[in-house]
Nucleic acid binder design. Structure first.
Lengths: 213, 213
DNA sequence: GCACAAACTAGAATATTATTCTAGTACTCA
DNA sequence: TGAGTACTAGAATAATATTCTAGTTTGTGC
């Protein structure tokens, strides 16, 4: 592995394609069920290259996981920042979060399935300790920091119920994610998208402050 | 594997202990990180015995997963049936579901962590197709059937909002599970149990019918 | 009590798969 | 153009899962 400095122009692109291929394998055979050889074949790279770029099988999965999170995170930011200036209300913000969730999961079901089923990849030792772990951690912290920043004024003003940030987060994304998990696993037939509004309402109902009805 | 007919008296007990040992390994090293040899050592059984009883590594995990679900399911039933006769209201029922979730996860964190992180084990080909798959599937269906049965009268009476069962289920357990996942992974410090009442209220708020305020 | 069958145990042998290693090739930059 | 480094390739090796063979125990019918 040599992520510290990739200089060659299309190396990032190749890594991206390799990850895409890996995602296909994982989707089809599960994490345990896919072999390096499958990924090698699907990606057209050699074993050596895969190991050069990612280090080992688990880190391929971890890279995929992180890229998924990033991808999702940028959609969230996008949805929040695209709210028209006159509509930056607590309700719109909360619903934007739900929409971002529903839409990302609906657009990238394979990626979402992978991310949902392998949360453990983050907590474990995916990265070479030291700097990089901090880097990703910091990125994630920064992400939730932005969210806190966005919503804090609405808590202060009483438009949102006062509760720990963790509860807030679980209230908003919990129901959507629960449904998504079942749908992605094929246990529910009705697409997540069907209930986009229901989940948005649900989220809003459970966090809105006492100021409004 | 020979699950079809275990006659020996303490064989079930041995399997149970082996699963317990396996859970310890999985908790400590993750599913991919634990080897058969670790389980062999932790359980005191031989490789041959493990394979005789479970078939392969994945099926050990699957057995653990299913036993976890069963275990949890019986707590749910217990909580619902122990409600005093005069208090079989929709609100008490909904809250009992949340309490069962919170309490089981808090009592068996390792088991819960395993179940949450490996939902995929059920959807895949853990069982020899034919009969047994049906058996577990039927058991799970039966379980949700019981729940539907319990709550249907309250939907009819208007104490509960009318919505698809799947939404109902996600609304009730989604937030709790979301928080639990983070807590079990060490990302949240405050124990799930702290917010037992909050999650119960949240669930009730999002499914209660229009009849009551 | 005794033979028979079947469940169960053990661990060596084998097969599969992950990972490392060595020898290159291709790009970048000075 | 030449030196250094990213990158590629695939054979060699190491780690691990799974199978196999040969027992040992236990319940059953007589």
């Amino acid at each position: 592995m040599s992520d510290t400095e990739q200089n060659r122009p299309n190396t990032q692109e190749k890594k991206r394609l390799a990850l895409q291929a890996a995602l296909g394998c994982f989707t089809q055979h599960g994490l345990a069920g896919t072999t390096i050889d499958m990924i090698r074949e699907a990606s057209g790279m050699s074993v050596g290259s895969l190991y050069h770029h990612f280090g080992n099988k688990e880190k391929i999965a971890a890279a995929l996981y992180i890229q998924g999170l990033r991808n999702f995170g940028s959609l969230v930011k996008c949805y929040l920042s695209e709210l028209p200036p006159h509509d930056k209300t607590a309700e719109s913000g909360v619903k934007a979060l739900v929409y971002a969730n529903v839409d990302w999961i609906s657009t990238e079901p394979d990626w979402a399935r992978f991310v949902f089923h392998h949360r453990s990849l983050l907590s474990q030792d995916l990265l070479p300790k030291e700097k990089k772990e901090d880097k990703v951690q910091r990125e994630l912290k920064g992400f939730s920091f932005d969210l806190v920043q966005w919503f804090t004024p609405h808590i202060v003003s009483g438009n949102l119920k006062t509760m720990p940030y963790e509860l807030f987060s679980s209230a908003i994304s919990g129901p959507t994610h629960d449904y998504a998990r079942h749908w992605l696993a094929g246990r529910y037939n009705e697409p997540l998208l069907t209930y986009r509004e229901e989940f948005a309402d649900m989220a809003w109902q459970s966090v809105k402050g006492k100021k409004q009805s």
